[in-house]
């Protein structure tokens, strides 16, 4: 698909996360655009609540694996409903109904305290399915991994952890983060060497960008910004970046054609030479940033 792919030196390991506070700013567009530019790289869709990378990258899925979280199970022959497990559960996942203990599995964080504190060894841990891990390849040799959270399962983090476990050594790994600034986003960002924040030229985009910047500063992850739906006349974001000495990595214009291409599942980089060059530039800039800031991070 590409004439010139950027060659990454063997043995060079790099984890780039693509994040944004606001949803729909173009994380997946940037992530998949980037993936197409780098030779021998892998893509991880960590937005397990709403994974969409597969729509743009269209990988052939070679392997699916069910993912489980441990939840307690009670052996009623041994349990006398003393309620010790209920007392130590911070998440209200265990309810004492006098003649039995009811387990509300959705609430369980798998901390294991209930099992540890049961005086009668009546608790064991069993597996509850929380989603699926899919592994495959895109036509041009990109390793593709995503997680699909089971609908109704409230906590995405355990599945995100499983996706990130598949990060490959010695290559460039691109992590497509879920939106927001809370646990799922942090789980992804903190596991990366560099984070690309994608925002858009609107007050909403700016407002949410500021919050994401705070998170990354607290996590001490180096980062830069891509402005999507870029509008020259809207200066607020560029001004903010300048005032705070934050790198502007790339801008993507606001164009109905890009929106149309995305809607039918196309990666902008594929059909436009100019965009493609921009993604190559983007990757080069990231590499240079990681090299210069790398010493502080490690």
């Amino acid at each position: 698909m590409w004439d010139t792919l950027i060659n990454v030196e063997r043995g060079q390991e790099l984890v780039i996360s693509i994040a944004s506070g606001k949803g729909g700013t173009g994380k997946t567009t940037v992530a998949t655009g980037l993936v197409q530019t780098i030779e021998n790289c892998s893509y991880f869709d960590c937005d397990v609540e709403e994974p969409n990378g597969h729509i743009l990258l269209q990988p052939s899925i070679e392997q699916t694996e069910k993912i489980y979280k441990p939840v307690p199970a009670i052996n009623s022959d041994l349990c006398n409903c003393c309620g010790k497990c209920v007392d130590v559960c911070e998440f209200n996942a265990l309810i004492n109904i006098k003649f039995d203990i009811v387990i509300i599995e959705e609430m369980c964080h798998s901390c294991g305290a209930c099992q540890h504190y049961c005086p009668h060894e009546a608790l064991s841990m069993r597996r509850k399915e929380i989603g699926e891990l899919r592994k495959g390849n895109t036509g041009n040799g990109v390793l593709f991994v995503d997680g699909v959270l089971k609908i109704g399962e409230p906590s995405a983090v355990p599945l995100i952890k499983k996706v990130i476990e598949r990060v490959k050594p010695d290559v460039v790994n691109v992590l497509d983060s879920p939106p927001g600034t809370s646990c799922p986003m942090i789980e992804v960002a903190k596991n990366s060497d560099y984070c690309v924040l994608v925002t858009e030229s609107t007050p909403y985009g700016l407002h949410d960008l500021v919050q994401s910047v705070d998170v990354l500063k607290a996590l001490r992850i180096p980062f830069g910004v891509v402005i999507n739906k870029f509008e020259d006349a809207f200066k607020d974001i560029v001004d903010y970046l300048e005032a705070n000495d934050i790198d502007l990595l790339m801008t993507i214009p606001f164009d109905r054609k890009i929106a149309e291409a995305y809607s039918s599942g196309k990666i902008p980089a594929i059909f436009n030479n100019e965009e493609r060059n921009k993604f190559e530039e983007l990757f080069k800039r990231i590499c240079s940033k990681v090299k210069t800031t790398g010493a502080e991070v490690v």
């Binding site: 969409n52 729509i55 743009l56 609908i151 809607s263 039918s264 599942g265």
Partner: peptide, 17 residues
């Protein structure tokens, strides 16, 4: 929702919930 494959995919998951 919006007429993009991604948004449709996500809406279907939401409707499941």
């Amino acid at each position: 929702t919006e007429p993009s494959k991604s948004a449709m995919n996500d809406s279907i998951r939401l409707i499941g919930l």
